[in-house]
Simulated scan of single mutants.
Amino acid sequence: MKLGFIGFGPQAKENIIPCCQLISGVEIAGICEKDAHRRRQAQERFRLDCGYSDYRQMIDDLHPDAVIAACYPDDHYEIARFCLDRSIPVFVEKPPAPSSRHLEELITLARRKRTTTGVGMNFRFAAVSTRLKALASGQLSSISLRHYCNKPTDPFWNYASTLRSFLHAQTIHSLDFLIDLCGPVDELAVFGGDEASVIDMTVMVTFANGQHASLITANTSPHFVFDFDAVCSDGRHISSSALWHMGVTEVGKVYANEEEKRWSEHWAPSPLDSGYQRSGYAGQMAEFLAAVEEGRESRISFASVAETYRCLDQIESQVAGRRYIPKPAMHSLTREAV
């Protein structure tokens, strides 16, 4: 499978390209990079005949089987449109589009062209995520998620506000994590919000299946935090810290000395884990490329993040004091089971 890559920054070099190289039959046919120094690095590293500064020329010259974009988000929407117009499968890092309207345009075009798409939602495939789904299957009652970071504190990616920058750079991951776990959202309420460069809010979510969640998120942490506590109806409590360690406590389970309290079981990744599996990058790229090969919609398609975008819009609307945003037509909420 011939792949054309757009962008050769840290995300592409450290995560996306190495994960693709782990998959048998993948060929790095070309790399497009606007920066001349990084473009030369890509040529030398992968022994490419030439480097491209224009992705359109690369695609027209190489006719890749799929395009993978890990570049500045400003370009994601136009790259996706260019590829879909030519029925070329395309994967872009998040966010795939600057707004829900733009995303709906891409979803419609992808369906009309019957072309595979993918979005970089690696948390869906993280080792902790897959174990949480297995442990809580059919029993999850509620989950509390804490997602802290230290950026953005100013608008970027040509967005007009720090809030939208934060939602599309950070909250998109934590909210999508919850939606992937629990399904479509029925109600959502936001407490707190943004003031100047500080964002600190709690989002209360009720899902259509009756499960509920709280998301506490802020841009004031000195480092990245992604911890959760999940409560199951069968008396099981599942906790995780930093997408790494996982603890499980069960009501009525007997441990040493016939004790039932103050004991728990713990899981941690193998020290030989590459990191790509643990973080979910390997899983997301394997899923996208398998979907391309099989000619089907991927589990990380543009359509699969429509509900996440709707909820991001609702958070932004509530924080800004605007009106409630209704649910779109049901076709936008359709997602394949993970």
Rank of each mutant, 00 (worst) to 15 (best):
Q139L: 07
S241R: 12
E336G: 12
M285R: 05
A189V: 01
A29T: 03
I59S: 05
H76G: 05
A36V: 15
K327C: 04
G138T: 01
V128D: 14
S264P: 00
G120L: 05
L163V: 02
G51W: 13
P95I: 12
K133C: 13
L140T: 02
A42T: 05
D74S: 00
R111E: 04
S137W: 08
L215N: 09
S214P: 00
D154A: 08
Q41A: 07
A303Y: 09
E307G: 12
T153S: 15
E104G: 04
Y159S: 01
Y309T: 04
Q139E: 13
G120S: 07
V128Q: 13
E250N: 07
F123N: 08
D65A: 14
P155C: 15
P98S: 13
T171A: 15
V26W: 08
A110N: 07
A126W: 05
C19N: 07
G295Y: 15
V198P: 03
S141M: 10
V292P: 01
E250P: 03
L163A: 03
F191E: 12
A282K: 07
A80K: 01
E44T: 09
L243I: 04
Q43V: 11
R38Q: 04
C50D: 04
A70D: 09
M285I: 06
A218I: 00
V225T: 03
G25L: 04
N158I: 10
L140C: 05
I143V: 05
P10W: 08
A208Y: 15
S141I: 06
I88L: 09
V254I: 04
F166A: 02
D180H: 10
A337W: 15
K113C: 06
A230F: 07
W263V: 05
E44R: 13
R47T: 13
S214N: 00
E44K: 14
D65T: 12
A134E: 14
L109E: 12
